[in-house]
Design a protein around this nucleic acid. Structure first.
Lengths: 336, 336
DNA sequence: CTGAAAGCGCTTACAG
DNA sequence: CTGAAAGCGCTTACAG
């Protein structure tokens, strides 16, 4: 019934070469004559052949898979990050296994080493600083580990400076009349799966305001979850306290969207009565005319992937650290 | 450096048997003498041996992996569903590969068949009725497919009747004085990754109210995202329109939690001024004294897994359909 | 009940 | 540059 997938044998036969040669073109081995390579590639195409990843791992000692551990929030941020990772992996014939850190017990099961997803050549850990959980801040694995959207001194890390982003936000909003407020996202209480992205942004923000001698007590802060509705409620709260004009640093574009929606619902002019600055600069920020702090999310994913592949291929040496800087993108929501 | 994982060879040597025998105890083959089995199990324990899943697939033609496709919302619902699946899989030495349907392009890549996660013996699809996308409503795969938290005539399905849940909610809330309202969760516009869970609940709810001759126009409905804040906003809206007493059917416990929090913030008595009924009956509903519609979520996961394993082991026959019924759990939030 | 052997689909020295 | 062969860690008839 189910037509079996073609094997390397059949490709070899069709291309009139040995299976070793097919394997070599599969692995981009340099010593294959161009003509031979072309013939093999034709056969591969013809049979719609894809190598069996399990066989590859058995034979080569590599799984051609990397795991990505992430605090599954199903947000635009992670969608874009994964996009960047997959784009870099695909031409290398590498596969990606997502491992959402849904619960503590799942993390333990992962680290237990029995899961197939663990049979990966390397680990990409997003946002969560899992290293804090372990002795010497090292994950209990022999495989290379790269952190992305977070940082640790013991592993290669790729991140965008959230503290700087917050500072840029504070300095920018200080230009406008009216109080300066912030809506931030509550982080998991469970430090295991939690991350500090949002509190870093807030710390940078508060630091900048302090430098400028601007007040920032608890009444200037609204803490909520990552949701459009959180932004709506935050604006409501601030309007009760301060009225307009009002300046809001939203910890994420999604929150900022809620602010914009609520302002419009209340008949306020966004960019004048209420100025709001988001974070991430997601594609839809443009049509919302949302000012935002842009992070090179896909690029962060791509860079982290490159570092990991280098490690997998044997690169030794001290942990590397790639730091991106967020960029202020100004649109109508702050300067209507 | 990295100490190699022990292989079946080493286990065989230590247990003084052939590797075939080790393999047999690994696979629960009946024809192994109890004494021999004990010796092998001891050796396995001693070496902390775990079989190489890639080798198993190569040799046996099975991956001992099942994929779970789900619309990653990172909610309590999916955490519990996965819990139920893993619990059933673990003793069978099966592995689970989560595949979050983050975007359309990822689904396509999955179905492309090249991803390792696709090299699974079977597929569990949660909530999303992906079948609508394909000819004859069949996913383009040869492996067995089981749906959970949704239903289709062409595959085994395990679900809990959401329409009935809505009807139970409507009939129950009709007992109390005051208007009957509902807060429902907006479903993805993209039908691909969307599901109809919440609209089914609403349909059942509206049907029950209609039967009872109770009004239910747009002013009785608040649509939001799945967030605590959505519940807060919903309550605000309804209070503006109707004042108290007020009865609210929340499409999910998380929404109901927001209703409770907002009611308390406004100094209202939950269970008298505001009655709210959630959905799912998550563990934390009890300490919130939240009335809810209980679904046997873990059990649904377990059942679906069992059906899938049966199919993997060759069970033929027409699609099976296991329908659970939600159960009304009454606590202080409706009868304070 | 249990070994020894063949085979799963690959990769990788080893010879040419 | 390219075959033929050995080997990766398992499973599964096949004989005893």
């Amino acid at each position: 019934m189910a037509k079996r997938k073609p094997t390397i044998q059949e490709v070899a036969r069709l291309a009139k070469v040995g299976i070793g040669t097919v394997s070599r073109v599969l692995n981009n081995h340099p010593s294959v004559r161009a003509e031979t390579r072309a013939r093999v590639e034709w056969a591969i195409e013809e049979l719609a052949y894809t190598p069996n990843p399990h066989a590859r791992r058995i034979a080569g000692g590599r799984s051609y898979t990397i795991s990505v551990l992430l605090p599954v929030l199903a947000t635009d941020f992670y969608n874009r990050l994964i996009e960047g990772i997959e784009e870099t992996l695909a031409p290398q014939r590498y596969d990606l296994a997502l491992f959402p850190l849904l619960s503590r017990s799942r993390l333990e099961r992962y680290l237990d080493g029995r899961l197939l997803a663990y049979q990966a050549d390397g680990l990409l850990v997003a946002s969560c600083d899992l290293t804090e959980l372990f002795a010497q801040h090292r994950l209990p694995t022999e495989r290379p580990v790269v952190l992305v959207d977070t940082w640790s001194p013991v592993y290669d890390s790729v991140y965008c400076d959230n503290s700087l982003g917050g500072a840029l936000a504070g300095r920018y909003l200080a230009r406008f009349p009216g109080p300066i407020t912030a809506i931030v996202i509550e982080e998991e209480i469970d430090r295991l799966l939690g991350h500090t992205v949002f509190s870093e942004r807030l710390a940078g923000f508060q630091g900048a305001l302090a430098e400028l001698g601007r007040p920032f007590g608890p009444e200037f802060l609204y803490v909520t979850h990552l949701s459009v509705e959180g932004g709506q409620l935050g604006l409501q709260r601030f309007l009760e306290h301060f009225g307009t004009p009002l300046n809001i640093f939203a910890g994420a574009d999604l929150i900022a969207r809620g602010v914009v929606e609520e302002a419009r619902r209340q008949g306020l002019v966004v960019g004048r009565d209420v100025r709001v600055l988001g974070y991430d600069d997601h594609p839809w920020a443009q049509e919302l005319q949302l000012s935002s702090l842009r992070q090179p999310i896909e690029e962060m994913g791509a860079q982290a992937t490159r570092l990991l592949l280098e490690r997998i291929r044997g690169h030794a040496g001290p942990p590397r650290r790639i730091r991106f800087e967020p960029e202020l993108v100004i649109r109508g929501s702050t300067e209507g």
